[in-house]
């Protein structure tokens, strides 16, 4: 399995984006992405052009849409769903998510704690969280300056709380890319573990939970338990689990690169524990958990310690 650099939340002139589908593909290639998903607001009108341009230029473009409802947004990727956004209500949102998943799409809760009305109506998730917890992914980070501010903190807390309750939600970042951004402002990237770079393989990787989000750091992370190795997103049956972790600088990251790493933090429903780590160093740490375990990487950036990467969860369960 290889981890691909992906951006799963983008817009074009088919909704309120500033780039045509062709310009989006061009910028995505310049930024070093392996794959993007086009998720225009409530329309797939730009998908065909983006997919064709991606095919011509060597970029995987995943068909998608952003359900931009009055009570919350969902990035829906795969291009198979027949759900009409206007039909989604607080009463039926769980059924609509299930319908999209049944048809083969992946549903991501988008920027749930961002400011909504009156600045960006619907951007804040007003749905009962339990009713949407059957979604596949959670945008823990979003838009510019994704690891800073109250919304980022609240999203991380809510995602961890959902994992602690037993829900399984892949961690993703959403650039929510609307502008050309020749020099991207502070942003992050979703890395997806996949057997291939094509759209179906990337989506399978996202669905399996093999993701991490990062600002300028590439992460190699696996769990070792009972003599076997497990990728991020795996179920682990044995209670004796060791996390193996190495981090490297991302050559594709373009703004305010991290200068050094400070620590790795293993977070479970039982608590958290930190270990020192440096770029290129391999660390091993025991993880004790009954529900989930994720790894957070901290480092120095813009002259302060910042959270630079979050892995998807390892889950307790199954026979593996």
């Amino acid at each position: 399995m290889k981890y691909y650099r992906c951006e799963l939340h983008t817009h074009t002139t088919s909704s309120d984006g500033k780039m045509t589908p062709e310009e989006l593909v061009d910028r995505a290639l310049a930024c070093g992405y392996d794959a993007i998903a086009l998720t225009d607001h409530n329309t797939t009108a730009g998908v065909k052009r983006a997919v064709e341009e991606g095919r011509r230029r060597g970029l995987t473009v995943i068909p998608g849409i952003e359900w931009t409802t009055f009570w919350g947004h969902f990035a829906v990727t795969g291009g198979k769903s027949d759900v009409l956004w206007r039909d989604i209500t607080p009463e039926n949102v769980g059924e609509k998510i299930k319908r999209a998943q049944t048809l083969g799409d992946i549903v991501t809760i988008a920027h749930p704690r961002r400011m909504g009305y009156p600045l960006c109506s619907g951007c804040h998730c007003d749905y009962d969280i339990e009713s949407i917890s059957g979604a596949d992914c959670y945008e823990v980070w979003s838009h510019y300056y994704p690891n800073e501010g109250v919304a980022a903190r609240q999203q991380k807390e809510q995602w961890l709380s959902l994992l602690a309750e037993g829900h399984r939600l892949s961690v993703v970042y959403g650039y929510d890319w609307h502008n050309r951004d020749d020099v991207p402002p502070s942003y992050a990237c979703t890395y997806v573990g996949s057997e291939g770079k094509d759209a179906d393989s990337i989506l399978r990787g996202v669905k399996s939970g093999a993701t991490y989000i990062s600002i300028g750091v590439e992460v190699e992370c696996k769990a070792v338990s009972g003599g076997r190795e497990y990728a991020i997103g795996s179920e682990i049956a044995s209670e004796e689990t060791e996390i193996e972790l190495s981090c490297f600088r991302s050559e594709d990251y373009r703004s305010d690169k991290p200068t050094k790493l400070t620590r790795a933090e293993i977070v479970t429903e039982l608590g958290k524990e930190s270990f020192p780590i440096a770029f290129g160093e391999k660390i091993k740490a025991k993880a004790t958990f009954e529900r989930f375990c994720v790894v957070c990487i901290y480092g120095e950036r813009k002259r302060e310690e910042q959270l630079l990467a979050i892995t998807g969860a390892f889950y307790r369960g199954g026979n593996g």
Binding site: R113, M115, G116, Y117, P118
Partner: peptide, 19 residues
């Protein structure tokens, strides 16, 4: 009106200042 509406909405949605 704008500042008041933003402030009230922000506290209702986030429970703390977002901006």
């Amino acid at each position: 009106y704008g500042l008041d509406l933003i402030e009230r909405s922000m506290l209702k949605q986030a429970g703390e200042p977002l901006m």
